[in-house]
Each structure stands twice: as structure tokens, then as C-alpha cells.
Simulated assay, not measured.
Amino acid sequence: MAEIRNLADVKKIELDPNRQIHSASEQEILDGYTTDIYFVRTVDILDSMGIADKTVTAEIFPRKPGIFAGIQEAFNVLKNKDLEIWALPEGESFEGKETVMRIIGSYREICIYETILLGILASSCGWATAARECREACKDKSFIVFGSRHVHPSVAPVMERAAFIGGANGVSNILAAKLLGIEPSGTLPHASFLIAGDTVSVAQAYDNTMPENHKRIVLIDTFKDEAEEALRVAKALGGNLYGIRLDTPSERGGVTAELVKEVRARLDMEGYKDVKIFVSGGLYPDKIKLLSEAGADSFGIGSYISGASAIDMTMDLKEIEGKPIAKRGRIPGRVENPKLIRLK
């Protein structure tokens, strides 16, 4: 495998006929295999004219406001090139048309990576922005991102990492957690209770199996009325129970503010005021606010983040050989942004 430099290199690509996963590998991305072919064609044409190595200033800007994420990957794509690189810090907010990344150097070294850079930033910023909306809805309460099941596994760690940058307190995806230097978070699935046939017996086995410092949160909507099951689990685990989780399916009305209020009240009446209520299942900012006001303490959020639209990113050439330039409709020259920091 070698880095694509021209159309001849594209012709030489041969894939393993036994390849089982269609997503690009790390090396394939770094070698330019996921770029749009017209950028490779551009290099060949400019080479024939002897101008592919002109020094350019390229700037990337978003089409709408959001939270910046993905720059570590974007930087890693370019870090071995002879380029000057500037960007916003990860987690920084931006406005539409604001310069979020600036690259200066030979156009040959930038051209083939435009597609890749824009894709990395567009997806990551979209996920981080959705997570920030959830963060604002949760206020000072915690939330974990549970979105991996909604996206292709090749990008699931990228998505959950971006959500953490956007404001999540934890991630359930193992690889995402390891990339962040934290431990993955999560409770138990309905399957564990269905196989055992009883919530309390699983809760007790869970309690006996986990280390002492583990926060025991038990799902209580599998078999019985949620309030009844919450009390059964609380009595069985006593002070070892950190919280209960509500994930009532839509077929039974989902998790509502009224349900949260009832479970909270019944736990309090029986002396379990310290038991937290963790909620999940189709949550979005407005619903998070309602459930929080009703007494929910923490949230598991999946599809609102994983299904967030990418934030369109555009790369423009703003200078060629130090001279301001732009296509029609754009103003020539750099769009300065004091928030940019030099990465290389």
C-alpha cells in the first residue's frame, strides 16, 4: 500500500478479494484512498502545467454554528507533510463562515486530502454540537452517550469521542473510552434480565460480581411495574444500590415525567432518597429538560447524537503564492480568526 500521488497510483490499487469489512482502514485513509477522484486528476493536470507545487493558503469554514471536534484526526492526516497548520482548539464554539482551520503549503500536499479533512470535521462537529445541546439541556446533571448501535462500527468510536468533546460525561463504546483515556460506562441490557427471568436475581448477582467502587445501576422495566420493581431492587441491594434505570419502551408509553415523579416519590417514601434515577430511550433536549424537572438524575443519550447531521465544511483557496484570491462570490484573502492556534 502506498500514498496516492497521481491517477497511475489509483490504477495500481488492488484490494484483497477476501476483504470482509468495507470501511477504510487507518492506512487507507492516510494514503488518500477515500478522496474524491477529481482531486487526483487535478494534480495530474497541474503537474502537466508545472504548477502543482504552488504555495497556497487554504481555509476551512462551516456553513452554520457548532462545536469544533475532529481536529486531532485531521492534524494526523497532515502532520508528516511540509505544511503550516492552524486550527481552533477542540471543543471551541464557532459561527457560520468562521475560519476553523488554515493550511499553508504546496497545493500538491493539500489537494488529495481535502475530501478527507472535510469529512472528518463535518461529522465530528455535527456529533459534538448535538452533544452540546444535550449538555445544555442536562445543565449540571450527567449524561452518557449510548449511540454506537446507530452507526457503522468503524465510526462509532469517532462519534462517541466527539460527543464527549461536546459535553458528555462518559461513553459506552470501549474503543472511544480508551482513546479518551477514560473507562467505558454503562449498565445492563434487558437481555440479561430476560435470560435470568427475574430482575432482583440479576441485581443481586450484579452486586456480588462488580468491584466495591462500581456504581450499581439496575434496569427495572423488564417485567413488572417500574415503581414496584424499583422498590424490590432497592430492598434487595440496600445501600449498595446507586441507582435505577428507566428505559420503558414506546409500546408502553416510554419514559414520561409522570413515571419519573412516581418512582421518585415511592423510593423516597420507603427511605431510598439516595437512590438515583437514570433514564434512557429516545431522549432529546426538550424531553431531557422535562425529565430532569421531574426528578431524573442522569441520562443515557443515543440517537439524538449519533443521528445528528454533519455540519457542512468548505475548503477555499484564499492565497496563491502570497497573493489574495477567491472564486466569484467570495472575498479574496484570509479570513482572520484570533481563536486559531498554530499546530505545526
Rank of each mutant, 00 (worst) to 15 (best):
K235E: 12
A236C: 07
D221E: 11
K289L: 09
E228D: 06
F299I: 09
G295T: 07
K235C: 04
G281T: 09
D225F: 04
I244N: 09
S280D: 14
V275D: 00
V218M: 07
S292K: 13
G295E: 08
L188Q: 11
R266G: 00
L194S: 12
Y272E: 01
F193N: 00
I288P: 09
K215Q: 14
L237V: 07
S250C: 13
H190Y: 12
V263Y: 11
A236I: 09
L219P: 04
E212W: 08
L291V: 01
D221K: 06
A234W: 02
F223C: 10
G254P: 06
S201A: 01
K215V: 07
V263P: 12
G295I: 00
G197C: 02
F278N: 13
V255D: 07
F193H: 12
V200F: 07
D286N: 11
R252Q: 15
E262F: 00
V218T: 10
I277S: 03
Y206R: 01
L291T: 05
L237P: 05
V218Q: 06
L267K: 10
A265M: 06
I288M: 09
D207L: 00
D247W: 05
E293T: 05
G238D: 02
A196C: 00
H214I: 15
D207P: 03
V260L: 01
V233E: 07
G295F: 03
T256A: 03
R252E: 14
E212R: 06
L237F: 09
F193W: 05
N208S: 08
E251H: 10
V255P: 04
R264H: 00
V279W: 02
G300Y: 07
G295H: 03
I244S: 08
K215E: 12
P249V: 06
L194R: 15
E270A: 13
L259S: 10
H214S: 07
E293D: 14
S298W: 11
D221P: 11
F193Q: 13
S280W: 07
G238F: 07
G254D: 04
T187L: 11
G239Q: 15
L219N: 03
D225R: 00
P189G: 14
T256H: 08
T256Y: 13
R264L: 02
I195A: 14
E293S: 12
A296Y: 04
Y272I: 00
I244T: 10
A234R: 00
V260E: 03
P285F: 04
L219E: 09
N208H: 14
Y272H: 10
L290C: 10
V260N: 08
K224S: 13
G253Y: 11
V260K: 02
A265R: 13
